[in-house]
Design a protein around this nucleic acid. Structure first.
Lengths: 365, 365
DNA sequence: TTGTACGCGTTATCAA
DNA sequence: TTGATAACGCGTACAA
């Protein structure tokens, strides 16, 4: 009977090697397989043996080595998550939803953040691939142009689901809100209350969110046959400072050319815009109405509470994770375009709500 | 020359196995070791060989298998993070700081959240141990009583650093704010402005944050020789609803027995308390002053802006991560008790600031 | 019910 | 400079 040669302990670090299934087996005069079977609840193990194995495993402080298991089974029970910014209110909520769905299924999350830097995102994705995650959830950075990383990932068979900030045409499932429709909804809300000269503080046109919100804005005007003034559309980024600057430019226009109302690409931009208005001694919504997008936690607390669109981040993350899990499950589903509903939250800043907060529902499904 | 027997491809799944270093080696007539050495930038490789290896690796779409590498090297370059609540404003910021420090060092984060449930936390930690993370950062759940999980982890040599919510006496480094001192600071602020009948909306006394903030509150009163009224100390949890209920009970007292000022355990509790005051038609700070703790993003936006203590979540997370990394580095440092500075943010709700927002600094270092 | 042999993909080690 | 071998710890497949 050949017996495996005991390898010399490596001299490195403080010493004591971790307890392995073999240690448990040896101390019981069993084989590793019996131990493995017992610990994993396989049926073909004697009950007494099993209890004995459990007992000694605990006594010895055995902890299963998932790395070895992953290598043997080619499965890590791990999902990679790539977000552009961990602390941007929307993403913690989304991650929370992702966690909820994946925890149930026994998966764990490797969280990476790109800091909106395409290079760093690429790096993260490649590392996730090396770590052999079972699937990836991505919300892309703003300045991504090279889609080869995603393609390669998808091509080698790693399930990928985009959420919130998607890249289409790669054959991956996308879960997002309908930016176009939601922007249309809130613009329409203004139009239906009589505004006819409306401006837009637009997001970066390089990224889909910015483009689609502008599209929805445009479509609403067209449908109402209200003129679109190119001068009233100013790209302002996603932050308060950009909103402030852009609004300031609008306010620099001769009074007759100023917009009566402004649709901001998101709430922070709207906050900046509100500040610009206040700094000129003008009032909202009487002199100029402002609406935002995202229902930031601060939106209802502003001096003039902000009318905005609520994005269900938690639900979005959860849905994306669920879709990824079924893809990992191997049920070769065709890529989907999923849209979660948004809500119009009417507050005071649009000058429309006569009777407190009204809610409408938008989005496709 | 013995040649390794080619194993039959497993029939499972869609097919194509991932490209391995062996594949690269075979297609070049080299050994895997040469490929490994070349790819990892080891010096003892011929330059031509190296470039050739890189080229074919790329052509074949080779992606290194970190799982195998981790198994061989007994190192995962992965850090486990355990937080009680992912979306609780403080933690995303802290995680952001953790990410910043670990990204630089080439580590990745496995994020788990306990949902404030001790059992789930225990589960998470054990899984992290199984996944052989190189270290763990923990902010404990509220109802943790059994510390064996931590002890076992530390005992087998996995570096552990607690942050924000710590468990002392286990020989692990703790990074936190000085709750006692910070609470003392804000209470003292009230005392030094003449309040003599002060209440406290206390946090759960099961967890250290709750206890220490109460302690700091007590000490400030004692030092000023101001009487402590047990009836004015009410446990209220960490949420708005608890703050509302607790403050309502204080307001139910006969007017003469009511506190002139209230120190809330955190901002959400303070928000609830403010609402309770408003609902009785009383005004802040004239009828009753209120201060909070944490500088929630909403604090400056309340009808009466809230005086509070700012916790530097990002710095705290970053420092904790840095300490963990040095511990992982093997420099057997003694466990430390680190404290990051907090800031007193004086706004209107305390009725003290005569000239806008003042800042003081608290904490030990 | 239990055991033996082997591979998962990589690197350390020693030999050439 | 390069190669052969043996682990790392586990589970599959087959044999006993």
């Amino acid at each position: 009977m050949k017996r495996r040669v005991q390898r010399k302990r490596k001299p490195g670090s403080a010493g004591s090697r971790r307890v392995t299934a073999r240690d448990v087996a040896n101390s019981l005069g069993l084989s590793t397989m019996t131990v493995s079977r017992a610990l994993n609840g396989r049926p073909n193990v004697d009950d007494d043996t099993r209890t004995l194995v459990f007992k000694t495993a605990r006594q010895l402080g055995y902890s299963p080595n998932d790395i070895a298991k992953s290598l043997a089974l080619n499965k890590t029970n791990t999902i990679g998550v790539v977000v552009p910014e961990i602390s941007h209110s929307f993403f913690p909520e989304a991650i929370r939803g992702i966690e909820e769905a994946t925890y149930e299924a026994g998966y764990h999350l490797i969280l990476t953040h790109s800091a909106e830097i395409a290079l760093r995102e690429r790096d993260a994705i490649q590392t996730l691939e090396s770590k052999r995650v079972d699937g990836v959830l991505i919300s892309t950075a703003q300045d991504v142009t090279d889609t080869r990383v995603y393609e390669q990932m998808i091509q080698v068979g790693v399930p990928v689901v985009f959420f919130d900030r998607c890249i289409r045409g790669l054959g991956a499932t996308c879960v997002s809100i309908d930016d176009e429709e939601s922007s249309h909804m809130i613009t329409e809300h203004l139009l239906s209350h009589g505004y006819t000269r409306i401006g837009h503080l637009a997001g970066p046109q390089k990224i889909s969110v910015g483009r689609e919100r502008l599209d929805g804005f445009r479509r609403a005007l067209e449908e109402h046959q209200v003129p679109l003034f190119p001068d009233l559309i100013i790209e302002c980024g996603f932050h308060e400072s950009g909103g402030y600057a852009a609004m300031s430019r609008l306010l620099d226009l001769p009074p007759g050319e100023r917009p009566q109302a402004v649709v901001a690409v998101n709430d922070p931009a709207a906050f900046g815009a509100m500040k610009a208005v206040a700094d000129r001694g003008l009032t909202i919504p009487d002199d100029i109405a402002i609406v935002g997008f995202s229902d930031d936690i601060r939106a209802p607390l502003m001096a003039v509470p902000l009318t905005t669109v609520r994005q269900p981040a938690y639900d979005l993350g959860k849905l994306a994770a669920e879709k990824l899990l079924t893809a990992i499950g191997g049920h070769q589903t065709a890529p989907e375009e999923l849209v979660v509903k948004t809500e119009l939250i009417v507050r005071a800043s649009c000058g429309c709500g006569k009777n407190g907060q009204i809610r409408m529902t938008g989005g496709l499904q």
